[in-house]
Amino acid sequence: MSHERFDDLAPVYALGALDGDEAVEFERHLAGGCERCQAVLDDAHEAFATLARSGERVAPPPHVREALMERVGAASRQRLPIERRRSWLRWAGATAACVVAASALTAAYVAARYEARLGVMARETARLREGLLAHEHALEQQLAATRAVVDLLRDPATRVVALRGAGPSPQATGRVVWHPSAGGEVFVANLPAPPADRTYELWTIAGGAPKPAGLLALDATGRGTARLEPTGGPVDVFAVTLEPAGGTSAPTGPIVLASAK
């Protein structure tokens, strides 16, 4: 059959005025995916929309909006709006209600499943985020220390002092980058992890008198870095001792690292 026939039917169908066998025939043709006829329908609908747009706006009575919003609210609270219908519609209504209820249950089940999964993913994400933040924090500290050292090394007054392992940890090594008025940084390696109730403490010794210079924390590989504040005077010896956790104001434990005098 030539398409010309449908060219006559499409506009009538667009107006909703096609009837009888022709309506059936055209719908079958359209269902076959005829782009040409579909375009005629779409164009007609756009034309009617343009007619409406260029016309006057007339506000509907406010009770329509109220009723609709209530209806939509009721539906989203899973209450089914069942209206009074003629008796022959009741069966169809009940069937439809069952379908709606079944879809609601399915939706609720799917939602519950996905909410559970979303919860797991949210916790996982939070954990990763925490890890990243901690990592970033550590990197920032390292970067700050590195920058501080580089700045110190530019200054001719800065000196680098070697630390040697002593006593219980002869394999330990270390360096102090020291500036008399700016302070410095200490780097150590190969130190064994301190016992549980102990900690490594730094000392600056001048004129035979040791001054506490902070605690030294180690990473898993036995390396550690710490900032040394300026003492306001010359320093003869840098030393690290093993002290009770929390540190002391005067050294009590063995020296594990010390610079030569």
Binding site: R53, G55, E56, R57, V58, A59, P60, V64
Partner: peptide
């Protein structure tokens, strides 16, 4: 609704 009801109502 607010956008299209005045268009549809007439």
């Amino acid at each position: 609704y607010d956008r299209y009801a005045p268009l549809v109502h007439p």
